[in-house]
Amino acid sequence: MPQRKGQLKGSPMSKDQNHQGDSQWPIWEVFVQAKTGAPHEHAGSLHAPDAEIALQNARDVYSRRSEAVNIWVVESKNITATTPEDNPTFFEPAADKIYRHPQFYKIPRGVKNL
């Protein structure tokens, strides 16, 4: 299995032409918001021919018990992701910047509600 870079999934359409005359729809990633004010969270993925059917399938697959008040779908091929191999150099710059945290700063004793 070749490692894939920059994409969340392999090219979902790659096998289409050989597939016994049956088409495989593209993969969509589904993000659901559980209640208003909450962030959208990745729930999983599904296949659909277009965005409209992707939303309907997402409701049926990921919200059969009112788990969502809002759903986003996005075709997997449109997602760009970091790769684990690049993690050390990609995320390292934040590791030594402790001055970005409030604990870095000394304040006089006794001061309140700062």
Binding site: M1, R4, S14, K15, Q24, S45, L46, D60, V61, R64
Partner: peptide, 20 residues
């Protein structure tokens, strides 16, 4: 049916096509 779909989707993250 939904459980089947959750599982096919997690198999696909390993690089197989669902149709396959």
């Amino acid at each position: 049916a939904g459980h089947g779909l959750y599982l096919y989707c997690s198999a696909e993250t390993l690089g197989v096509d669902r149709s396959e």
